[in-house]
Computed example of a mutant assay.
Amino acid sequence: MLKIENLHAEIDGKQILNGLTLEVGAGEVHAIMGPNGAGKSTLAYVLGGRPGYEVTQGSVTFNGQDGQAIDMLELETHERAAAGLFLGFQYPVEIPGVSNVQFLREALNSQRKARGEDPLTGGEFLKLAKEKAALLKLDMEMLKRNVNVGFSGGEKKRAEMVQMGILDPRLAVLDETDSGLDIDALRTVGEGINAIMRQPDKGVLLITHYQRLLDYVQPDKVHILARGRIVKTGGPELAHDLEREGYEALGEEVGA
């Protein structure tokens, strides 16, 4: 589904990714962990097409909504979204003056239009929104409020997962979705990710600092990213090893 080969990227002339290679198959959840400054968020931003991040070498191939392989790096940000990519942010932004319902309906119908599909009516959209909000235990009244304005950290993350459910992506890249969540919200978000994305035709790239979210979203593989590249790959037990021993136990592999 997602194939990254020898990816090099920089921002403001500073090299961040240094030959990163990674492949995520359909139906798989992959977790990426690593020390601060390793390049985890840079990877998410490069995949999402954030301005300012320049790819200097390598390729990213993505099997989009129609199942056809496409060169993701050739697409604009909105084209990547329409092709089936969803990027979850560590710090979801507030958008005063725009309600969640309005924002999400416009976003969904814009993507549907790009794929040659008919837009949803107001009634059809509200039915879908209620269904996805229920998965994340988010009151529909929250979706009538301005996007993330006055939301707690946990509410922002749950609202973002509702957004993911409504947009129904093929691949979700989630950048520290567990940041700022208490125990109950962590469980709810984890269960929401499983309900929405644990499908045979979908994939998840889950970026996290901690093992705790992986108790709820069991990854097929765990990768350690350090100095801009993947230095170690293992199963879920690798995250437990890191939680117990820290990155210093990996020594020179992570530059410790």
Rank of each mutant, 00 (worst) to 15 (best):
E191S: 09
K144C: 12
T177I: 15
D178A: 06
T177A: 15
D201Y: 00
M142G: 11
M161K: 09
I196N: 01
K157Y: 12
L174I: 01
I196W: 02
D168W: 04
V149L: 13
E160W: 05
K202V: 10
N148E: 14
I183F: 02
M164Q: 12
R198M: 08
K202G: 10
I196V: 14
D168H: 03
I193G: 09
V204P: 02
R145F: 10
G150T: 07
D168R: 01
E176W: 03
K156N: 14
G165C: 10
L186Q: 04
I183R: 02
S152D: 12
V162C: 13
R145P: 08
G192V: 05
S179E: 03
G150M: 04
K157N: 09
V147E: 04
R158F: 06
A172Y: 12
R158A: 03
A195C: 01
G153T: 08
E155T: 06
R170C: 04
S179R: 05
E191G: 11
A159P: 06
S179K: 07
L171E: 13
G192L: 06
E141S: 11
R170K: 15
G190Y: 07
M164A: 14
E155W: 09
M161Q: 14
D182N: 02
I196A: 02
G190T: 08
T177D: 03
K157S: 12
M161I: 15
G150H: 04
G153F: 08
D175W: 12
G153I: 08
V149H: 10
I166C: 01
G203A: 15
G150Q: 04
N146E: 15
D168K: 03
S179M: 05
L167V: 06
K202N: 10
E176A: 05
G203C: 09
M140N: 07
L174P: 01
M197N: 11
T177C: 14
D184E: 14
G154F: 12
R198T: 06
E176R: 04
D184R: 07
T188L: 10
L143H: 05
G165I: 09
G165R: 08
D201V: 00
G203E: 09
E160Q: 15
G150L: 04
V189S: 00
N148R: 11
K144H: 15
S152I: 12
M164Y: 07
R145M: 13
K157L: 09
D175H: 13
M142C: 12
S152F: 10
G190I: 07
K202P: 13
P169S: 11
L167P: 04
V149G: 11
M142P: 00
V189I: 03
T177E: 09
L167I: 06
D175R: 11
S179A: 15
S152W: 10
A172K: 10
I183W: 00
E160K: 04
E141P: 00
K157F: 10
G190D: 07
N194F: 01
L167D: 05
M161V: 15
D175I: 12
A185L: 01
I166G: 02
S152R: 11
V189N: 00
L167G: 03
K144V: 06
Q199P: 00
G203M: 10
I166W: 01
L143W: 07
A195S: 13
L171A: 13
R145Q: 14
A172W: 10
A185F: 01
